[in-house]
Simulated assay, not measured.
Amino acid sequence: MAGLVVRAPWSDLPSILASDEVLTALRLSLVTATVATAAALACGVPIAWLLARTTLPGRSVLRGLVTVPLVLPPVVGGVALLMVFGRRGLVGGWLYDTFGISLPFTTEAVVLAQVFVAMPFLVVAVEGALRTADRRYDDVAATLGATSWTTFRRVTLPAVTPGVLAGAVLCWARALGEFGATVTFAGSFPGTTRTLPLEAYVAINSGDSDVAIVLSLLMIAVSVTILVGLRERWIGTA
């Protein structure tokens, strides 16, 4: 971080951030990361509930499968996504033959890659919140005649909302910084799949280190802000 700060072209910072390439990449990153977080919430919260509140057989296996992207090289994730959603993939082949839908190298592929690598952060946070939440309130709601869905919506979810929000923020930040799976599965096309990390990679490869430094500092600033903001949530001190 010190090296980036020292070498940053501070005088050119406004013009670099206002350039069409950077604004396009920033806009694409913000949109895809937000959509990916929404998709991760829709899929991840139910999975976290299954892991924390049920006696589903094979929960440890499911937990391992859900969280394996935390330790898996992102490029491997991109290759796996190609094998599943590519034109000759397990699901992608059927989508292309039946509906003419091709996912690789599209904006939708960026979202899929981001969900793959970022959703584990959400699941881990929500599962932890569910495990520490007092279940007696759920039991009381059940004795009063509330259905499982009503209990979850009116009692459980409000109780674990801070954990859900923390997981969503971490998920969004991880999606914003995703590179390996994105470049493998979605490629690097300006305005379509070239997010901020890919724009920084293209800049450094083309010898434009100033742009790469500015984009790196921008992503670091976002990450540090999020981590500092969640510090009190994690360790209970300001």
Rank of each mutant, 00 (worst) to 15 (best):
T237V: 15
T37R: 03
F85M: 08
S223L: 13
W94G: 05
A200K: 00
L103I: 15
G128N: 14
G145Q: 08
A2V: 14
R233P: 00
Q114M: 07
I235V: 15
S223W: 03
L144K: 03
A109F: 02
C171N: 07
L41Q: 02
L17F: 12
R136N: 12
T225F: 09
A113K: 01
P57V: 04
A48I: 01
S29A: 07
V126H: 04
G236M: 08
P9D: 06
A186R: 05
T156F: 08
D139R: 15
S19D: 13
D20A: 12
V140I: 14
L82Y: 02
A25Q: 04
T150H: 09
V5F: 12
P9Q: 05
A109M: 07
A203Q: 05
S15W: 12
T182N: 07
A118D: 04
V214Y: 09
V183R: 03
L30K: 02
A109I: 06
G44V: 03
D134K: 03
V5C: 05
A212S: 13
A2M: 09
L218K: 00
V76C: 08
L227M: 14
D12E: 15
T151H: 09
T54A: 02
V110N: 02
A52P: 02
G163S: 09
V222S: 06
D134A: 07
A168K: 02
G163P: 01
L198A: 10
A38F: 14
V91E: 10
L176Y: 01
I220F: 14
V211M: 10
A173H: 00
W172M: 06
T192Q: 14
R233M: 03
Y96F: 14
V31S: 02
G145F: 07
V183F: 02
T195R: 01
V22A: 03
E199F: 01
V115F: 11
V155Y: 10
E178Y: 08
